[in-house]
Amino acid sequence: MSHISSKRLFYTIFVSLIILTGLTVFVARQDFGAMNTPVALAIAGLKATLVILYFMGVRYNTPLTKVVAASGFVWLIILFGMTMGDYLTRSWLGFPGR
């Protein structure tokens, strides 16, 4: 709980985040077709993970904190997944309105 990270670690994370920001701007100019958004989200997810693990110190925290931190994202997947599960299957039946 009272883990103290070194300043050096914080600077390393900071530089990584800046580089990843540059990278996300760079890849936005490349066309990966259907993979454009997944690539952008993967970089954003990596940046968020670095902030959560090191700046927020989850890496050095109790397992409970890890579970709590993860639970919000799991519940987001439930919300997104089941709602989009409705919209994406609406056309399967092949006639309008159903």
Binding site: A28, R29, A40, L41, M56
Partner: peptide, 25 residues
């Protein structure tokens, strides 16, 4: 307070590519 501040940062990390960077190619 720091945890809160970092969280607000994380939200922006997602907002930036999702709002600003789509269609730049």
């Amino acid at each position: 307070s720091g945890l809160y501040w970092h969280f607000v940062d994380i939200v922006w990390i997602f907002l930036f590519p999702l709002l600003y960077l789509i269609g730049k190619h």
